[in-house]
């Protein structure tokens, strides 16, 4: 009987909040555009909490959002340490090295159409491969600590950024390149004043794809061996102990870190490529 009551209550809350959203969506406006997804997110959390409490779902299957929040609150130093290990040391180092190398290589092979025609298909091919699979090898080579995670990240982000940068360097129009020729501009001047700025929207596209890859690479590489800290390490050990509230806490931190990283890149993109039609207001 209480099961039926619980179900009715859950459905009622869902229906009510959905109706509210539908009503809001019909009006439009800037505030609504922010409020509707926020209400939807809160609805999901509320329903989650209700389902867990009303139906007595055990914490080893699905902990309630409140339990996860409690786990976050109780383990802040631990979570921070994991974040530093995995995100700042592993992912960020690898991201900077990998993206830097990719842009550098793209500029270096820029003068050789032969190398480009050879490297692009290979790069496109490699970009679609399950590169996280190289994690066990790189852990073997660079040890358990963050260096091996950074190495995995380097390999993961390199090709998407390379392919995008090469495409970007080819993006300036024939007319604009002719214009530089009429000025008698040197190769370096054309690269610096025309082709690199014109390539920026493409480069940022690659850099944004790479943010997610970097975090995934750093976390998954820890499944193959790590010191006793790090987000991937924590997830795999706490899963083993069925302490799912801690796993969800770690995932929540990863989600926040991931979107903050992406958001930072998107912000930088806005500032650098303000002139591009996709960024203009």
């Amino acid at each position: 009987m209480s099961g039926v009551f619980g179900l009715a209550l859950v459905l009622a809350v869902w229906g009510g909040l959905w109706a509210l959203n539908a009503w809001l969506a019909a009006r439009g406006g800037r505030a609504v555009r922010l409020a509707v997804p926020a209400i939807f997110g809160l609805t999901l959390l509320l329903l989650w909490e209700m389902v867990v409490r009303l139906f007595g779902v055990p914490g080893v299957i699905l902990p309630a959002p409140s339990a996860i929040a409690a786990a976050i609150g109780a383990n802040l130093p631990l979570l921070w340490g994991d974040l530093v290990q995995t995100f700042f040391k592993g992912a960020l180092t690898g991201y900077v090295l990998g993206c830097g190398a990719a842009v550098a290589v793209a500029v270096l092979i820029d003068r050789s159409p032969f190398l480009q025609r050879g490297l692009l298909p290979v790069g496109n091919f490699v970009a679609a491969l399950p590169i996280v699979g190289t994690a066990p090898i790189l852990v073997m080579w660079f040890g358990f600590d963050w260096q091996s995670k950074a190495a995995v990240v380097v390999v993961m982000v390199f090709f998407p950024v390379l392919v995008n940068t090469v495409a970007g360097l080819a993006a300036s129009g024939a007319m604009q390149r002719d214009l530089m020729r009429t000025y008698g501009a040197s190769y370096g001047q054309t690269l610096l004043k025309l082709r690199l700025p014109a390539a920026m929207p493409f480069v940022f596209n690659g850099l944004k794809i790479a943010t997610t890859l970097a975090l995934i690479g750093a976390i998954v590489a820890e499944f193959f061996g790590s010191p006793i800290r790090g987000m991937g390490f924590r997830i795999s050990t706490e899963v083993g102990r069925l302490a799912l509230d801690m796993v969800w806490a770690e995932i929540a931190v990863a989600a926040v870190a991931g979107s903050a990283f992406y958001g930072a890149l998107a912000l930088a993109e806005r500032r650098v490529t303000f002139w591009h039609p996709s960024q203009r207001k």
Binding site: G173, Q176, T273
Partner: peptide, 11 residues
Amino acid sequence: YVFQAAGLYPW
């Protein structure tokens, strides 16, 4: 040289 399109750099 003036081209068919202005070809100004948007940035």
